[in-house]
Nucleic acid binder design. Structure first.
Lengths: 141, 141
DNA sequence: CTCGTTGCAAAGGCTTTGCAACGGC
DNA sequence: GCCGTTGCAAAGCCTTTGCAACGAG
C-alpha cells in the first residue's frame, strides 16, 4: 500500500464511487500533508477553511466519517474533549503515541507491543491502541 | 498498597479531609465490589441508586472526579460514547483490556507492553494505555 | 438530470456548573 | 455552626441529523 498523497487518496475515493468536491479535496490535503498529523476535527476544520473558506463543520465531520469507514483515516479517542484523526496505519507507517501531560504535544513512536503479546484465551485481536502519557523533553524539568 | 475494600477507601478519603456521605460510601462500594469492574458513569449511577435511591447524576460525576484526582479511580476514555471508570492500578492489580468489537464485552489481561518499550528520546513516561480490540470467544465465528 | 454532498440550524448525549438547601464533623 | 456536599436545573461542548439547495459526473 502506497503512502497516501492527497492525489492518490482523491483517486481512491473516486474509484469507490464518491464524488470529488473541493471540500473533500481540501480535507484530504490537510490530512496527508508532510508532517505526521494527529488532529482534532476542530483543527482540520480550521486548516480546511484556510484553503476552502466557508466549509462547514458538518461537512468536515461527515467526510471524516466517510474516510474512517473507508479505512483511509483512523479515529483515535484519547480523551473525551475531542476525537483525533490521522491517516490510517495502512496508509501511513504503523506507530503509537507519546502524549505530554503538560503541554499536550504528541510524538509518535515506532515501538509496537503487539507482537510480544501472548495468545489470550479465545480472544481474536484485530486492532490495538498503545499510548504513553508522560512529559516531553521540554516539560520534564 | 492494599487492594482497596470499600471500607479502606472510605477511611482513606476521610484521612484526606473529605467528608463521608452515604452517597460517597455507596459509590465506593460499587467500584470496589468483587469482580473486576470497568463501568460507565451511567452504570455506576444505576448501581448506586439501588442502595442509595435518589442519588443524583451530578453527585456521581463529582465524586468520580474527586476519586480520580485522589488517584483512587482511573478514568478510561476508550470511546467517545462514555468514559469508563475503574479502581486505579495502584489499588487493583495492573492490567490492560481486551474489548470485543461485536458485543462490547471487556476482558482484562495481565500482559503489559510497558517494560519492553525502549527509551524514547527525551520522553519521560508516567502512564500508559494498552487496549486490544477484536472478537471474543463467543463472537469470533 | 440524478443522486451524492453541502450549509444551516437544531437536536443529541455525556458531562459540567451555579446556586440554594442539606448535613458531616 | 461551618464548610464541604448534594439535588436540581440549566448550560457546555463535541458531534450528529433533517432538510432544502447545490453541483459533480
Amino acid at each position: 500500500m502506497t503512502l497516501g498523497s492527497a492525489a492518490d487518496l482523491v483517486h481512491e475515493l473516486k474509484s469507490k464511487g464518491y464524488k470529488i468536491t473541493r471540500q473533500r479535496e481540501a480535507i484530504l490535503k490537510v490530512l496527508s500533508s508532510d508532517e505526521c498529523r494527529l488532529m482534532t476535527a476542530q483543527q482540520i476544520y480550521e486548516e480546511v477553511n484556510a484553503t476552502m473558506p466557508g466549509t462547514n463543520f458538518s461537512t468536515v465531520y461527515r467526510n471524516l466519517e466517510v474516510l474512517t469507514q473507508e479505512n483511509i483515516v483512523q479515529k483515535i479517542e484519547i480523551n473525551r474533549d475531542a476525537a483525533y484523526y490521522e491517516l490510517a496505519p495502512d496508509r501511513d507507517h504503523h506507530h503509537h503515541h507519546l502524549i505530554c501531560k503538560s503541554c499536550g504535544s504528541i510524538k509518535t513512536t515506532d515501538f509496537c507491543p503487539f507482537e510480544a503479546m501472548k495468545d489470550e484465551d479465545g480472544f481474536m485481536p484485530v486492532e490495538h491502541r498503545f499510548e504513553v502519557y508522560g512529559y516531553c523533553k521540554n516539560c520534564k524539568q
